[in-house]
């Protein structure tokens, strides 16, 4: 599903962030992307979202080489991915319903379908009865759950998360990670970036460790 072959990345005028990274994450797998702050975890996720280009090597998602993906095809490509951010990137002037609905509206879904699927997604993260509330009235953990609802409302094939529990205490973190596990069990490919060692030890998930621009990949993920 996600395949990196000798991927190298450097930002203009800077040394390499990633050097000859190889990875093969198959359909339905779930893994943690770890490494110290500044190791390039976010950069790798941005490349998967086609927010950043590859400097060298090949990055394939679902058989599509992202380097050859045309500009006008990027939106359709992004609609097959769900993404969760540490700062959740919710729109504070829209209620929860509108925040989650955005994912479906950009895809041109009719209002009736948007209604039912947004409800279902918010139900899944335990906020189904708070559609008309605004993000500011929610706790950090609840905000992140809205972010997750927005990321999965369109049932993406791939779910990416960049430090999704970075701002949360351990108990809330576990709740959030349980949600990811749940989606994983329903067949979604999940890649979570985190630098939290405690979390890494606890979860017992495959760990892909970035350090010094290199990815230490377990045998099965080569």
């Amino acid at each position: 599903m996600i395949r990196l072959i000798n991927v190298t990345k450097h930002y203009p005028g800077r040394h390499h962030v990633l050097r000859e990274v190889n990875l093969h994450l198959r359909k339905g797998e779930m893994a943690l992307l770890t490494g110290p702050s500044g190791a390039g975890k976010s950069t790798l996720l941005k490349m998967l979202l086609r927010l950043e280009g590859v400097s060298n090597g090949t990055l394939m998602v679902n058989g599509v080489d992202l380097a050859t993906l045309k500009r006008r095809h990027i939106p359709a490509y992004r609609r097959r991915i769900g993404v969760v951010f540490q700062d959740h990137k919710l729109l504070m002037d829209r209620d929860l319903f509108a925040n989650v609905a955005l994912t479906l509206q950009v895809a041109g879904l009719p209002a009736r379908q948007v209604q039912s699927r947004v409800r279902a997604a918010l139900d899944k993260v335990g906020l189904g009865d708070r559609l008309r509330e605004y993000p500011a009235t929610l706790s950090g953990g609840e905000q992140q759950r809205v972010g997750i609802a927005r990321a999965i409302v369109h049932t993406p094939e791939i779910l990416l998360a960049d430090e999704p529990t970075g701002n949360l205490d351990p108990r809330l973190s576990n709740e959030i990670l349980d949600l990811f596990r749940d989606f994983h069990h329903h067949g979604t490919t999940v890649l979570i970036a985190t630098h939290d060692q405690g979390q890494i030890d606890r979860l017992g998930l495959p760990v892909l460790r970035l350090e010094g621009g290199r990815l230490h990949t377990p045998e099965d993920y080569q």
């Binding site: 979202l49 939106p75 490509y77 992004r78 990137k89 729109l91 955005l102 950009v106 927005r150």
Partner: peptide, 16 residues
């Protein structure tokens, strides 16, 4: 700006 960035992240087209 925020709204535009989020919309483009979740796959909004330029036209949208």
């Amino acid at each position: 700006r925020d709204e535009i960035d989020v919309a483009s992240l979740v796959g909004a087209t330029r036209a949208f």
